[in-house]
Write a protein that binds this DNA or RNA. Structure first.
Lengths: 331, 331
DNA sequence: CTCACGCAGGTAAACGTTTACCTATCCATC
DNA sequence: GATGGATAGGTAAACGTTTACCTGCGTGAG
C-alpha cells in the first residue's frame, strides 16, 4: 500500500487539506513549522501523490498523447523522442500511440487517450483525415503535424513542413546535375502531403522545361518496404537516372532495389531522400537528403501544445518549417 | 463535458450501478430490455468510461510502463513497438519512458509510472542496476529484459538473451574466416551485459588457441556515436582485420569510422553486428549480424507481465533467447 | 469594548467509477 | 399462509486528491 496524503496528515497531526496545500505550494497561510514537518514526512515516507486521483479532480493530467503512423520509421522515432524530451522539460509526460496508418486504430487511440485524460494530443502525419466529429466531441487541444485536419476550435497549432519547396529543391538539384528522367516515389497518393510534394516536383520540371512522365511516379506509403517495391516496379516499367524519394525510409528501400538490379548509387542512379533522419549519414553510402529538423519540429509541437494549455486564448500558431538540402554521397 | 455514466443512467431511467454492471458484463440479473436500452444509449452518446476514475477504484489501469535507455537506438524502437503491439492485443496499453541510461532519470520514471498507476513495468537493458529499495517499495510487477535486477518478489519475469553464446558465435565466425586480430566493441564495461559478451568473445579465442589483446577492446555505450569514436581510437592505437560489435548501432558507427580511414568493408576490415535490427539489411552494404528476434522478445515480455497480472501465483518465468547468425555482406 | 482583518488550519463536497450489500417483487413450495 | 429463492435493481461508501468555504484566534484601530 503506497503512502497517501492521509498518512502524512495523520502523522503530522494536521488535516489532509493542509498537506495538499503545502504540497501544491498554496501555503501562504501555513506556519513554517507545519510546512517543515510535512516536507520531512514526505521525504521520510517516500510519498508521491497519486496522479490518478489528482487528475480526476483537477481534470488535468499533465500528459500529452502522441499519435504517429509508424514508430519504426526513424523519422517518427526522432519526432517522438523530441516531443517527449520537450514535454518532460516542461513538466509533462507523453503517451505514445502507433496507428499503422489505420484510421480505425487512430480513432481508437483518440478515444483511448481521451479516456485517460490526456491534456492534449499531437497528431502526426498520417495518410488520412481523422474523424472530425470525434475530434470535435473530445474537445482536447490538438496539434497537427504535417497533415490536413479540419479547422476545429480545439486546434492548438499546426506544424507543417513546406513540402512543396522541399520536393522542388530535391528535383531541382537532380535536374541541375543533368538528370532528365527522374522517378518520384512518395506516400499515399490521396494524402495532401503527397499531392503537395508532387506539385513541387512538377514545378521544378516545369521551370526547367522538362515534361513529367507519369510512368515515373509511384506513390503508396512512406516506409522502406514500399520504397523497395516501388523501385522494382519502376525498374521493370521504365528507365531513369535518378530517384526523388519523399522520405529517407523510401530512399533506403529504393537503394536496396537498385542494388538488386546491379545498379550502383550514384553512378547508375542518383537517389535523393527527404527528412534527414539520423541514420542517413550512417548508411555506408551516406544519403543525400532534405533536412527537416525533426527534433525542432517535435519540440515546437509540444511547446505549442503547452502554451495553449497555459492560455487557450492565445492566438493559434501555425508554423511552416523550411527544409534545406544536405548533399552526401548518393547524388 | 464528456458523457458520464450518470448521464446514461439518467436517460435510461436506472441507477449508475446498473449501467456499470451492464458495461462490465456483470449483468446476469439485469433484464434484456434495460441492457439493450443502456447499450443503445452508450452508442448514441458516444460514451467512453473515464479510465481515470475506473483506475482509482479498481487499482488497475491496464497500462504497462516501458523504460528503455534510448528509443533512438533502433533495437529499442523495435522492442517498444513489439511490446506495445503485444500489449494492445491483450487489452493493455503502454507508456514509454526513455532513460538515456541515466539512473536518476530511471528512478524518476519509475516513480512517475507508479504514480500513474501502471499495472506493471518492463525495464529494458540499461547499464545500471536500479535502486532496489525503490522497486521493493513500489511493489509493481516488473519484467526485466537483458539486465541485472535484484531478485524481488515483484519480479514477474526475466527475459534475457544468451549473450555469451551470441558473442561466441560472432567471434568464432570471424576466426573461422581467418581473422586473427579482432576488435571488440561493446557498451558500458561495468554492466553485466558487456561482461558476459566479453566472456563469449574470449571463449572463442581460447578455443582457437588465440590470445586476446587488451588493445583491441573498447567498451562504452551501445550507440552509433560510441561505435564511431571507438573505431577511431582503435585505428589510432592498433591494427586489426575484423570488428566484433556488440550491437548493430555500434557496427553502423564503426563502419562510418572505417570509411573515414579509407578502409573498405569487408575487404580491409570485416564487421559483425549484434541484434539484427530492421535497418541492418537496408544499409547499402548489408550488415552481417546476430539475430535476436526483438519482436518476439517484446511480445514475451508483455505476455509474461500480463500472465503475472492475471495470476501472481504462477511460477516466475525466465526466458533465455538463443541468438543465431545472419550472414550478409560485411563479413 | 467592539469590529475587522490577518492568520492557521479544518470541513466536506466533488471528480466518475465500482461493488458490497440491501430491498422489493414474484412465484413456487411445504 | 408463511418461507425462501430467484430476479431486477438500488444505495452508498470508497478510491486519493483538491478546493471553496468555514472557524477560531489574536491583535490593532476606532
Amino acid at each position: 500500500m503506497a503512502t497517501t496524503i492521509k498518512d502524512i496528515a495523520r502523522q503530522a497531526g494536521v488535516s489532509a487539506a493542509t498537506v495538499s496545500k503545502v504540497l501544491n505550494r498554496k501555503d501562504q497561510f501555513i506556519s513554517e513549522e507545519t510546512r517543515e514537518k510535512i516536507w520531512s514526512l514526505v521525504k521520510e515516507l517516500d510519498y508521491t501523490p497519486n496522479s490518478i486521483a489528482r487528475s480526476l479532480i483537477t481534470r488535468s493530467s499533465r500528459v500529452i498523447g502522441i499519435i504517429v503512423p509508424d514508430i519504426l520509421n526513424a523519422y517518427f522515432t526522432e519526432l517522438v523522442r523530441a516531443c517527449d524530451q520537450a514535454a518532460r522539460e516542461r513538466g509533462y509526460s507523453t503517451i505514445l500511440c502507433n496507428s499503422d496508418s489505420d484510421p480505425a486504430k487512430e480513432t481508437s487511440h483518440l478515444t483511448f487517450l481521451a479516456s485517460h485524460g490526456v491534456d492534449g494530443i499531437v497528431l502526426a502525419a498520417s495518410d488520412l483525415i481523422p474523424d472530425a466529429r470525434l475530434l470535435e466531441k473530445l474537445r482536447i487541444p490538438l496539434v497537427s503535424m504535417d497533415r490536413e485536419v479540419p479547422d476545429l476550435d480545439c486546434l492548438a497549432a499546426r506544424i507543417d513542413t513546406d513540402y512543396e519547396t522541399g520536393a522542388y529543391l530535391s528535383a531541382s538539384h537532380l535536374i541541375r546535375n543533368g538528370h532528365r528522367r527522374i522517378a518520384f516515389v512518395s506516400g499515399n497518393p490521396l494524402a495532401s502531403n503527397t499531392r503537395i510534394r508532387r506539385a513541387g516536383f512538377e514545378r521544378a520540371h516545369c521551370e526547367a522545361g522538362l515534361p513529367v512522365d507519369p510512368d515515373l511516379i509511384e506513390c503508396g506509403a512512406f516506409n522502406h518496404r514500399f520504397g523497395l517495391m516501388a523501385t522494382r516496379t519502376l525498374l521493370d516499367r521504365t528507365r531513369f537516372t535518378a530517384m526523388c524519394c519523399m522520405s529517407d525510409m523510401l530512399a533506403m528501400g529504393a537503394m536496396v532495389g537498385l542494388r538488386e538490379h546491379g545498379l550502383s548509387v550514384p553512378d547508375d542512379c542518383a537517389v535523393m531522400g527527404f527528412d534527414n533522419i539520423y541514420i542517413a549519414p550512417l548508411l555506408v553510402r551516406p544519403l543525400s537528403t532534405i533536412e527537416r529538423r525533426i527534433s525542432e519540429a517535435g519540440s515546437l509541437a509540444i511547446g505549442a501544445m503547452i502554451d495553449f494549455l497555459d492560455d487557450p486564448e492565445r492566438p493559434r500558431r501555425t508554423v511552416l518549417m523550411e527544409p534545406t538540402v544536405i548533399l552526401r554521397e548518393t547524388t
